[in-house]
Every structure is written in C-alpha cells, then in structure tokens.
C-alpha cells in the first residue's frame, strides 16, 4: 500500500458515502450539502490525477455556482420548512435493482477490456498541462469549434432560464 493508494481509498469512501447520502437524505438542504462533499472528493481525485486546473474549475464552478444554485432552488420551492412523506418512490427497490445491474454491467464490460489494469505512464517532466489545454481550446486544429459552440450553448441556456423563471406582471 503506497500513500497514493491510501489517499485514493479514503477519497473514494468519502465520495461514495456522501453520494449515498445525497440520494437517500429526506431533507433536501442536507442532500445539497452532501453533494458539496462529493464534489470536493472528485476535486481531490482530479488533483491526484495531475489535473490541477480541472480540480480548481471543479471547486469554482461545481461547488461555487451549481451547488449554491441548488441550495437557492431548494429554498425557493419549499411549501413549509418541514418535509412530509417519504423521499423515495414506492418502487424504489426496482430502481435499486436497476442501479446494481448497471454497476455490475459496467464493471463487467470494462474488466473485459485489455487496458483495464494498466498503470499510469510517467508524467512528462516540464510539461505544462494548463498551457497545453489553453492551446487545445483555441487552436483551429483542435477544439476551437466545440469551445465556441459551448459558449453559445451557455448564452442560450442563460437567456432561456431567465425567460422561463421570469415572473410577469399580473401573474400571482
């Protein structure tokens, strides 16, 4: 057991435990707070994978924007401060069976692949991953088109969100 493996196992336990709490907690504010724990765990994993920029973006965008948006949405859509009734469907055991089958199927599928247990290649010394990522995002030979399409998508989504949630005069 190396230190990296111990860190991975602790992070994985935190991620899976908090993800389980996200889908089972009745109180939605608590579920959103558990989601923040899960996202932090994923950021730690990105850092162990030498993807420092992705880890920072994960904290800034997912935790700073998306999780806070969830907490606001929970606060805006509560009938009262007390939650009533069960949080899960009547057929939740069927959903659990489907989720277990999906997990088994995915693990079976990737374990049949040749590179399943391969070790990481040595990280090239002096390689600047952030600069390479920036070049890849704006280079015409690489990903400039998906990058621009993503920005158009974000603009359209924001305009659409404002239009959908806008309260017109005379309504209510």
């Amino acid at each position: 057991m190396t230190a990296a493996q111990i860190i991975f196992l602790i992070t994985a336990a935190v991620i899976l435990g908090s993800a389980f709490m996200v889908v089972t907690t009745k109180n939605l504010v608590h579920a959103a707070l558990w989601l923040i724990v899960t996202l932090f765990g994923a950021a730690v994993l990105f850092a162990t994978l030498n993807a420092g920029f992705i880890a920072v973006v994960q904290v800034v965008i997912y935790i700073g924007a998306i999780a806070i948006l969830f907490i606001f949405a929970v606060m805006l859509t509560r009938r009262s401060m007390t939650d009533t009734g069960p949080g899960l469907n009547r057929g939740w055991w069927l959903s659990a069976a489907i989720a277990l089958l999906t997990f088994g199927g995915l693990v079976w599928l990737v374990s049949g692949w040749g590179g399943f247990t391969k070790a990481a290649p040595a990280y090239p010394s002096g390689f600047d991953a952030v600069a390479a990522l920036a070049h890849a995002l704006v280079s015409p030979e690489a990903f400039v088109l998906p990058f621009e399409v993503a920005s158009v998508l974000l603009l359209a989504a924001l305009v659409g969100a404002v239009y959908i949630a806008f309260q017109r005069k005379g309504e209510e």
Partner: peptide, 21 residues
Amino acid sequence: LSAALFSIGMFGVLARKNAVA
C-alpha cells in the same frame, strides 16, 4: 469508482420524488 458513482446517481434519478433531488 466512477461506475459506482454513476449507479448511485442513477438510483437517485429513478427513485427520488422531488424534482430538485
């Protein structure tokens, strides 16, 4: 790990009643 996380999220999508959940 990511297969397990995906399955937990799928359980949440299928089993939760609240749309935010």
